[in-house]
Amino acid sequence: MKGNFMVANLKKGLILSLLILLVGCFSVSTFDQYVYTQTTSLKVDALNVMDRATTDYASQSDVVADLQSKLQKIYEYERNRPKNEISLQLWNTLLASDGNLLGGFLQRWKTETKLHATFISEEKKLVGRAFDEIAGLESGKIKASQISLSK
């Protein structure tokens, strides 16, 4: 009788341990509304700034600096989230000044001082899609309220 009681408790303990272990093993950070909102908002800001690249970079440097400051803030926020390596790699690719998405575009604008309208229009489509990839990954993440043991 006493033996059966102990076995039952041991099994309950094992099950609880397994559940806690499973929750602790999530490999990707949970959904963050702030990141999602900032990403979609920065997409609009970035595309608006890109539109200005038909004019001289020097005359728009304040606008570019303001955008870069906002991007640095979200990047720092993302960098400090645990289990967030893939989102951070996405931001790295988007912002790399030696790459060809937003960071590379801004660098090219600075170097060449002005860019052609058709090129800007085509580049904007790709940069917009790049922001969508970041927002898409974020919106696919599990919401904290959906995690079993937090209910």
């Binding site: 990707v28 996405l90 690719t93 575009f105 090129f119 790709l126 790049a130």
Partner: peptide, 25 residues
């Protein structure tokens, strides 16, 4: 430049898929 941008975007799409795959698990 645009072709290289497309390549960077493809890298991002692959990264997102890797992330979504981990999230599915």
């Amino acid at each position: 430049f645009l072709v290289k941008t497309q390549k960077d975007l493809m890298k991002m799409q692959a990264l997102k898929q890797a992330g979504l795959s981990a999230i599915a698990v």
